[in-house]
Each structure stands twice: as C-alpha cells, then as structure tokens.
Write a protein that binds this DNA or RNA. Structure first.
Lengths: 201, 201
DNA sequence: CGCCATCCATACTGTTGCGTATGGTTGAAT
DNA sequence: ATTCAACCATACGCAACAGTATGGATGGCG
C-alpha cells in the first residue's frame, strides 16, 4: 500500500525497552520491574529482551543513567533566569517540582530514591543528581542576594520539602491546599516576615 | 540444671513475628519481606508462621496497625510542652525526627510510605498517622502564637522536610551539615528575619 | 499416666521469574 | 535468488516463594 513507516513490525530497540521499563518502575517500583512482565507489556517474549540486554541489571543501569541525564538537563534548564527574574524562577522551580505538576515524574523520582536506599549504584546516581540540583538552586538564591550560607539552607529545604510532601497523605488536614502550598513557597523562597508579599514576577 | 526461663524453647508468639518482620521491612522494604526469609531469620520454618498468621497479608496488616499505634503514641508524647517551652519543643521535634537520630525509625517510616504508594490499606494507615502528627504539631505552633493559617503551613513544611531530607544524598554539598540543619530548623520554626536568633529555651 | 491443645517440622503443589540454548523469521545487501 | 545479520519465539533448567496437609514434639491438666 504505502511505504511510510507506519508500523515498523514491532521492531524494538534498546530505548523502547528502557522507556517501557521506566513506566513500570513508576507504577510498580523497582521490585515490580521484572523482565517477563515487561516483555508481556511490550507484547514480545523475553527472547527479545536478552538480545538487547545482557541481563536484568544491564537494563536497570541503563534506566539509571538515562534518568540522571534527563534530570540534570532539566534542572539546568529550570534554573536559568533572566536578571531580575531570579526570585520568580525560584517560585517556578517549587511549582514545577511539586507533586501534582508531573505526577509521573515524581513517581519515578520516588521509586529511584527508594531503590537507592538499598543499591549503591542507584545511590551514586541520586547523589549526582542531588548535587547538581542543589548547586543550581543555590545559584538562584545567591542571585537573589541571599547570603551564601543561607542559600545552602534554603535550597536544601526546597528539595527536601518537594520530595517529602509527595510522601505525605494530608487530604483531611486543610481544605485550602493551594494556599497552604503558597505559604510554604514563601517560607522557602523569601521568608523575612511571616506574611511576605510574594506577588512575584 | 536450673528452672529459670532461660530459653523458652524458641516459643514464638505473634508479636515476635511482627517485631522481626518490622526489622526486615526496615532493611529490605515491603517487597523483601518474605515469610520464608523471615522464618529462616527466626530459625524456624514457615510451618510456625502459618500457625500464627492466616497468610502473608495477615502479617502485613498487623505490622501496619502496630506501627500506627506506636507512631501516634510517640507524637502525642513528643508534642507535649510545658507553657513557655513550646518553641523549644518544636526544635526538639525537628531534631528527634531528623534521620540520624533514629535511623531505624526513619527506615521503617520510608518503607511504609513507599508501601503506601501502591497499597490502599497502607495508605489509610499513613493518612491516619499524618493527620495526627500534623494536628499535634499545629497545636504547638499555635501555642507559640503563630496564626492559624501559618501554623498549618509550618507544620506541613516541618514534616515534609523531615521525610524529604532523609531521601536525599548530599554528602558533597556542604561540609557543615550541622549548621545547615540548624538554619533549616530556624526557617521552619520561627523565620521572621533571615538571621533569627533562635537561642531557644 | 494419659490426653489434648499448642506449636513447629517436613513434604508436598503451583506459580513466578531469571537466564540459556536454539531455532525461526525478516529485510537488506551482494 | 542467496546469504547474512538482526531480531524474536520456544522450550528448557533452576531457584525462590506462597500456601496446604499432615505428622511429630512438648507441656499442662485431669
């Protein structure tokens, strides 16, 4: 009929496997990431898997490095700010990394961090990502005129909050979550007085 | 030789199993909590396990409820403060729940929360614990004279920070972690100006 | 002493999953 | 058209694990 690459005959490459595996990681965690389950999801058998990967560990390490590269690319992008826009950019970072924005991204993040608690390789990757993120965010605070020591404290608080809040279940605590999160953003970004006017931007 | 209860013949009861299971949960996570592994650790066979428990799920639910009860008992204890000591108590809570104080407790905490991301029963337990903790901590802030809305924000930030920071790997970021954590405690507890004098107590 | 309830060991079945071996299919180059 | 490399299916062995069935040991009590 046509020669357009409509369906490349389910020809899978390494990246397809990694992408699908990352989906499973987000949904089921590292322990639920089994090659036979993954193969079933891709509608092939594990004969295909062991063509593209040496073993399960090979896939896992590929997931890690790809995740790291994506996260580092993202943070340097998110922390670039035009002069004068640095404070607004901090608010933007908090907003972007808050759980609801990209639920999938946070699920991966949490799965990787849980993984890193028992796997040295994963821990090394997380360490790289954290260091890069902290340094990038710190630059932003410094550009806002925050003193060095305090810049370190605030960017650490920023990331700890972002990850921690996505671990909590607080449906019945406050009925105005939006305002709650806004207040917290103020505390992290620029709390000098309790009621900061953060009409940022 | 003697009739003292030196070795009760390895007679295990339900609580012994739950205690050992909680250890495994802390070390290996919910996915690594297998009944045969647990039995081996207790030097018995799973024949014993299935005497005390209906199935694996029975054990898991027992772990959850016991964890909840312990955590709720602990938080009401930690948030009791003599009049005038409320601010110091807030610092104490931050200190106590920071990862290094009781590494084991935090490992269990993180394991349960990761578990709760895929299990509704675990999620319900975490919701109970979170609500209790937030309300208790909120009372402390209110007793410090913090306005209601802000009290909600600060106690939420407190817990999110505590859990989040134990997920991060920041060895190479700052060489004075103690001071970093002190600064963050200030931001959470009483930041009105960036350099608050928190010579609390 | 003998009986019964408690507690555990042993021995099975069935399932899931990792990894390997080997053969089949497909498309592109010669 | 033949051939070869890339890609996948099938079929195997092996281990870990959930759960069941059943029998053995132990201790208190009538």
């Amino acid at each position: 009929m046509d020669s357009t690459p409509a369906k490349p005959r389910t020809q899978l490459d390494r990246d397809s496997w990694i992408a699908a595996a990352t989906d499973v990681l987000a949904e089921e965690g590292i322990a639920g990431l089994r090659v036979e389950v993954l193969a079933k999801r891709l509608k092939v058998t594990k004969g295909s898997f062991y063509w593209h990967f040496q073993d399960r560990r090979d896939l896992l390490l590929a997931i890690l490095t790809q995740w790291r590269d994506g996260r580092i690319r993202d943070i340097v992008k998110q922390t670039k700010a035009a002069p004068g826009e640095e404070l607004a950019q901090i608010y933007h970072v908090i907003e972007v990394y808050s759980a609801n924005r990209s639920r999938r991204g946070m699920m991966i993040e949490l799965a990787v961090r849980d993984w890193a608690r028992r796997d040295p390789d994963a821990a090394a990757i997380v360490a790289e990502v954290d260091e890069t993120r902290l340094r990038c965010a710190r630059e932003l605070f410094l550009a806002c005129g925050v003193p060095p020591q305090e810049a370190s404290s605030r960017c650490m608080l920023l990331y700890a909050y972002v990850f921690g809040v996505s671990l909590m279940i607080y449906d019945n605590f406050d009925n105005d979550v939006a305002r709650l999160k806004q207040d917290i953003s103020d505390l992290i970004a620029c709390s000098r007085s309790p009621r900061t006017d953060h009409t940022a931007v």
